[in-house]
Nucleic acid binder design. Structure first.
Lengths: 219, 219
DNA sequence: ACCTTTCTGTTGTATTTGCAACTGTTTTGT
DNA sequence: ACAAAACAGTTGCAAATACAACAGAAAGGT
């Protein structure tokens, strides 16, 4: 666990909290870690949870499969990010999505009740922790709003441009990598993979963008 | 303001806080109210805000218009609900959507810094307030996830069924009213109004549902 | 009561999409 | 180094959608 203290210190949840404080906090929050194989579920639809999860290593997809096996990817969780915090905060609500490791992953779990319940002594930074959680929720909220913006476009081309523009803006450069392969991107944007692939090539031929695998350049 | 105390007491933000406490809190949070005409903007895209808004009376749509004037409705805010809390919590981020009164409305504004910053004396319930804000954010987060579920459906019919099922479940009955007219529902689901109208009638003819204006019955 | 505006449903057409099947390339595991 | 699996791109076709233009019904204002 010690190994991850520097990374934890820079996570959104523990931002502004010293490394020494952090170690004692982890006890206080009854922190446990667990490893997951590629393809293994961290959380499953219908479950109720009382811990927030912090991804120490690996990559998690928040996703769902419908009746006919069609996969829909809600979001990608990368190292240092939180997930499950919504349902941990809501307590009694059932999860609507699965959280699946797409790489071998290591996850830290923190009891949300202990985050929300003030411990009178020890944790000087408890208030900070709660505000960090609040900010993390607000940021995820904004991210979902942006995703809705992509999804509300009518055509595959518009969805792609909306998504790629955001990625470019986030990278602060017209050159950037995306965290999805074609099938995953299609599942993320809820479009047909082959039609999307064709659309990407059409845009490339029109000079709107260029790409190689996950690497994109917007013109 | 006194007039709204009972309603405030039952809002998500002030849940669990006594009416007497509430009155003193409102001072502490530098609460102000303002009235809006139908069609007037409460918040506008690109703005930065530092107050959360609580709708005392009326109805607000969180929406956006694109380049070509196509309207997209992100969500509907009804009486007692919060809005703007995401951007108030994020502080430096610009709003991505407009908040527009679709009826004459009365809005209460509360300085978010005062919510987040512990006041040492007076407000015994301050911790409760912060946890309420956290819960409100988590609930909105879940709502956005559900909307993404509707939007990720491929066909207009599936989007409608996904949305109507949720509304039915929320109402706890196969008989329910929706808060949108046809054009608004189309703008909410990002589909063509006339095609959606046709689809609704087809579903009615197939016996899947019946409706009259905003009133729906699922079979 | 009347006129105007808003709302809902209908139809036809061009465009776009999803789907399925297939090819060639890259990556992975042994 | 090789075989198998995963990945990306291509094409044809049936189905669904957006768009536009229109008609009737309901609601609102004077």
């Amino acid at each position: 666990m010690k190994k991850y203290l520097p990374r934890l210190k820079n996570s959104k949840l523990f931002q502004g909290i010293g490394e020494d404080e952090l170690a004692s906090m982890l006890d206080c929050l009854s922190a446990v870690t667990r490893n997951y194989y590629k393809g293994e579920s961290v959380f499953s639809r219908g479950e109720r949870i009382d811990s927030v999860a912090l991804l120490l290593e690996g990559c998690i997809h928040i996703q769902k499969e419908d009746y006919w096996g069609n996969l829909s990817i809600l979001s990608e969780i990368s190292e240092g990010e939180l997930f499950g915090e919504v349902y941990a905060c809501l307590g009694s609500d059932e999860l609507l999505n699965n959280a699946v490791a797409v790489k071998p992953s290591k996850v830290l779990f923190l009891d949300v009740k202990r985050i929300l319940t003030m411990c009178p002594s020890a944790c000087r930074f408890h208030g900070r922790l709660i505000r960090n959680l609040l900010t993390a929720l607000a940021q995820k909220n904004k991210m979902l709003t942006q995703k809705l913006e992509h999804m509300s476009r009518r055509t595959t081309r518009e969805k792609l441009l909306s998504y790629l523009s955001e990625q470019s803006q986030r990278a602060g450069s017209p050159v950037f990598d995306i965290p999805f392969n074609r099938q995953q991107l299609a599942d993320f944007l809820s479009v047909d993979r082959s039609a999307m692939s064709a659309e990407l090539c059409r845009m490339r031929d029109e000079g709107i963008l260029s790409f190689d695998r996950n690497h994109f350049i917007l013109n």
